[in-house]
């Protein structure tokens, strides 16, 4: 385990941010390095760095150019990126309840048809997955999960929908996602969860962290409604099964 890690590319993102790019494609090993560098910067802050944004393949590092310049910061980031990635990290594991299909997941039947199987089998495959929060972005709490099994992968919709419901659980390409707020999406909608990954006036406001593990479980429509009321009242609803 002494193989030299490839040096990430340091891409200028204006005069106040740098993109530390580990891969151009969605790549699990690259995502681990992104999250490892993110944790390193949280543990050993570089003066002048103001905020970090992990994504699948890169870490965006915001900084104050009156405190540190691009070359000095780039040098430090390059060194930190060489630190070995811990083989196993202590991460939290969540179980998120989902009501699949019907009005809650209007694409389930079509997904099953396209993939040549039954809706039940699609659900079975989806809940069998052990996912990791690769990044959160786009809109508050929109959590992109890696680990979707090959047999559930299909291209995104030709025509993205302008409005999809809050709490939508969907698949797109090699990813699955937990969407918090209602909004546009080009993914296939499998179901809904009552879990709010983002809720003001709740502690914590953001439930999931990049790097967290996620599994899904099936609930019926009645349970979903009960959980939705509880979640509206500030309950987390998602189950923390390991911390």
């Amino acid at each position: 385990m002494t193989a030299t890690l490839s040096q990430p590319r340091l891409l200028p993102s204006g005069d106040g941010a740098v993109t530390v790019e580990f891969s151009r494609t969605i790549d699990d090993a690259a995502n681990r390095r992104v999250l490892a560098l993110d944790r390193t910067l949280a543990r050993e802050p570089i003066p002048g760095v103001t905020e970090t944004v992990p994504t699948y393949r890169s870490l965006l590092v915001h900084y104050d150019p009156t405190q540190i310049d691009f070359d000095a910061l780039g040098g430090k980031l390059g060194e930190l990126a060489q630190q070995p990635v811990p083989p196993t990290e202590e991460t939290r594991r969540w179980r998120i309840p989902v009501v699949y299909g019907g009005e809650h997941g209007i694409d389930l039947e079509d997904v099953a048809k396209t993939l040549g199987t039954t809706p039940d089998e699609i659900v079975a495959r989806h809940i069998a997955g052990d996912y990791r929060v690769a990044m959160i972005g786009f809109t508050p709490g929109w959590s992109y999960l890696s680990g979707l099994q090959d047999s559930l992968q299909m291209p995104r919709r030709q025509n993205p929908r302008l409005l999809t419901p809050a709490g939508t659980i969907s698949i797109g390409g090699v990813q699955t996602g937990v969407q918090c707020l209602a909004g546009p999406s080009g993914w296939h909608l499998l179901g809904r969860t009552a879990v709010r990954t983002y809720q003001l006036h709740r502690d914590p406001i953001f439930l999931l962290e990049p790097g967290d593990r996620v599994t899904f479980s099936v609930v019926d429509a009645k349970t979903f409604l009960e959980q939705d009321r509880a979640a509206e009242g500030g309950e987390i609803v998602a189950e923390l099964i390991a911390a």
Partner: peptide, 11 residues
């Protein structure tokens, strides 16, 4: 299409 990455003001 690229794999999504972070944005800044002025991107």
């Amino acid at each position: 299409n690229i794999v999504s990455d972070g944005t800044v003001n002025g991107s």
